[in-house]
């Protein structure tokens, strides 16, 4: 997956298109993906790779879209320890995800 993401970043650089990379920087407790997992976001909101299925991915996606727009890196904290209605939150940990624009 890493190789495919790097290839897409290179392609985006040559096309002059922006991309945002989200990297799991650290985790505590039980989380869907471990540190180093990556997700690459495109300007149309589609992405490749995953930082963790349904568990917190939408929060990261929103931050990544903001970073796509303003270029400011963000550190998103996804807390999976608090249950939300209708969601079993089987994960139960906390992860920090660093979001950065890798192509302007």
């Amino acid at each position: 997956m890493t190789a495919e993401i790097f290839a897409e970043i290179r392609e985006a650089i040559s096309q002059g298109e922006p991309r945002v990379l989200a990297t799991v920087a650290n985790t505590r407790g039980s989380t869907p993906r471990k540190s180093g997992a990556v997700m690459l976001l495109r300007p149309d909101g589609t992405f490749m790779g995953t930082i963790g299925g349904g568990c917190g991915e939408s929060e990261v996606w929103q931050d990544a879209m903001d970073t796509m727009a303003d270029g400011i890196p963000r550190l998103t904290v996804v807390d999976l320890t608090e249950p939300i209605d209708g969601d079993d939150k089987i994960c139960g940990g906390v992860m920090e995800i660093f979001v950065e624009r890798v192509v302007d």
Binding site: T2, A3, F6, I9, R10, I13, E100, R101, V102, V103
Partner: peptide, 15 residues
């Protein structure tokens, strides 16, 4: 990261 491909080059070289 965005300025150059130096970061990408270094990672791919290492791998």
């Amino acid at each position: 990261f965005s300025k150059k491909t130096i970061v990408l080059d270094a990672i791919e070289n290492a791998i």
